[in-house]
Design a binder for these strands. Structure first.
Lengths: 94, 94
DNA sequence: ATAATTTGGTTTATAAAATAAACTACTTTA
DNA sequence: TAAAGTAGTTTATTTTATAAACCAAATTAT
């Protein structure tokens, strides 16, 4: 009847992050913050979870002496996102 | 960019309950339990929240001496469900 | 008859999650 | 050189979700 919703993606902010990342080559922390409207703290935590799940690659470098965090969605992340989308359709009559 | 997701509906079980209710005239506790696969405790709590939000009407009666809980979605509930569905579309490229 | 199981739930306790607030470290501007 | 801004992380707090325990009545088995 209802397909299970991946709890890692069933979160407003993590879903928003994935939604941004699926549409771009890469996105840095600041861009994700702007696009999602999240606070830095919340974003930091949620990116971490997505990384630990293997859904995004996170690259921490420096631009001069300022830190720079760049994120990219992984193929596993793309698949999870697509699965989540499909699963949602069992709840919504789209 | 991203529309806010009504937190009351952004819950796997509550969404499933609403999804069942939107398709039927009414549903009792047992039917909802079967359809959603939820535990009774969890279902009880979540129905309560939906009722308090005004999204479902709950009618507690007795069939003989056994309690019977019948749920119906309200028009407010239908609207909230439709809004939620629309909001989700800003995250998923459906 | 009475003990065990099932039905239809509710209440309470616990684990997990989301979020904000506080903090670090460095840079830029006044 | 002091204040404010950037780019985050860590920690603490509040909410949620969920399970476990419980209650009352009915049914089934002994």
């Amino acid at each position: 009847m209802f397909r299970e919703l991946n709890p890692l993606l069933h979160s407003e902010l993590r879903l928003a992050v994935m939604s941004v990342l699926i549409g771009v080559e890469e996105a840095d922390f600041t861009f994700l913050r702007e696009q999602t409207g999240a606070t830095a703290g919340n974003l930091s935590v949620q990116i971490d979870k997505l990384q630990k799940a293997g859904y995004v690659d996170v690259e921490k470098t420096f631009r001069g002496k300022m830190p720079r965090t760049v994120c990219r969605i992984t193929s596993e992340g793309v698949k999870a996102f697509e699965d989540y989308t499909e699963a949602l359709k069992s709840y919504l009559k789209l």
